[in-house]
Nucleic acid binder design. Structure first.
Length: 261
DNA sequence: TCTGGGGTCCTAGGACCC
DNA sequence: TCTGGGGTCCTAGGACCC
């Protein structure tokens, strides 16, 4: 079972082909396969690959980050709590710059600090609290996401020079609309929301969106709504550094709604 | 480092409904 | 005329990930 995360990362669930009575033996049984995988990649592509083996996605990712180029790291269930203790909180999935700072300010710097913390983490990180606590102990029940169901499609362009030239902006928007339309049609989806995004020279970034009843697929329709949003909100009052266009609320136009009259 | 591109999810406020 | 309680949807921004 494979979940592709990006162009160069994926999770593999090998539990079905490496059966064993205990969780850690399952992990050990997958080692030869991991070595073989690395070898295949190297002989076929002349590329190194890094693999992390563990009982869930959180730990597998941490394991693969552990030894970077050409690594192979296994985190056993028996060792996971100890293994995590010394890592900075930033190592946990979902802890970025902002959350890290909030935790640091409360004196929580390592995953061990999180493990030992007796208070309610919700006071520091909101609804992420319970999940963060589980992550700190190496518990993660997120399943592999298989389906290629997709929630939004967008494109954006940063200009070499900030511009408010209507012709340049219209051309840009038209290209983005046509790209989005192509991707919608390939997936046989219709969009009910169109969003524009602008960024000015000072990096101020604004988005505006509109939701419509009819599913959109045509480039012209998406383009027109994008223009409408830009105009309605007078977003091009100064030169733009970036212009973006996107669609969301994607649905398969399964049953076409007919007009009553 | 003056900061690209494509995504997902969460939050908070407001309009609106019963 | 002001006011409860429970809910949905839309919008805008932001944190985070690769």
């Amino acid at each position: 079972v494979v979940e592709q995360m990006s162009i160069d990362e994926a999770y593999l669930d090998l539990s079905a082909i490496c059966p064993a009575e205990s969780a850690d033996v399952v992990l050990l049984n997958s080692l030869p396969l991991a070595r073989e995988l690395k070898q295949h990649i190297h002989s076929e592509r002349q590329l190194t690959a890094t693999i992390g083996i563990a009982a869930n996605k959180l730990l597998a990712k941490i394991a693969s980050d552990h030894q970077k180029p050409d690594g192979l790291t296994l985190i056993a269930e028996a060792d996971k709590i100890q293994f995590l203790r010394l890592l900075p909180v930033h190592a946990l999935y979902g802890v970025g710059k902002v959350t890290e700072q909030a935790l640091n300010q409360a004196g929580l710097r390592t995953v061990g600090d999180l493990q030992d913390h007796t208070g309610d983490l919700r006071a520091l990180v909101g609804s992420f609290g319970p999940k963060l606590k589980q992550f700190a102990f190496g518990q993660d029940d997120r399943p592999l996401e298989l389906g290629d169901d997709i929630k939004s499609i967008s494109g954006e362009e940063t200009f070499l020079q900030d511009t408010d030239d209507r012709k340049v902006l219209r051309t840009c928007l038209r290209e983005q609309a046509s790209d989005i339309s192509g991707r919608l049609k390939r997936r046989r989806l219709g969009a009910h929301t169109v969003q524009v995004k602008v960024r000015y020279g000072d990096f101020t970034t604004l988005t505006r969106q509109i939701t419509v009843e009819e599913p959109l697929t045509e480039a012209g329709d998406i383009y027109r709504l994008g223009c409408f949003l830009l105009g309605r909100e007078k977003l091009v009052s100064r030169p733009l550094r970036l212009l973006g266009l996107g669609v969301a609320s994607l649905r398969e136009p399964a049953g076409q709604q007919l007009v009553l009259l």
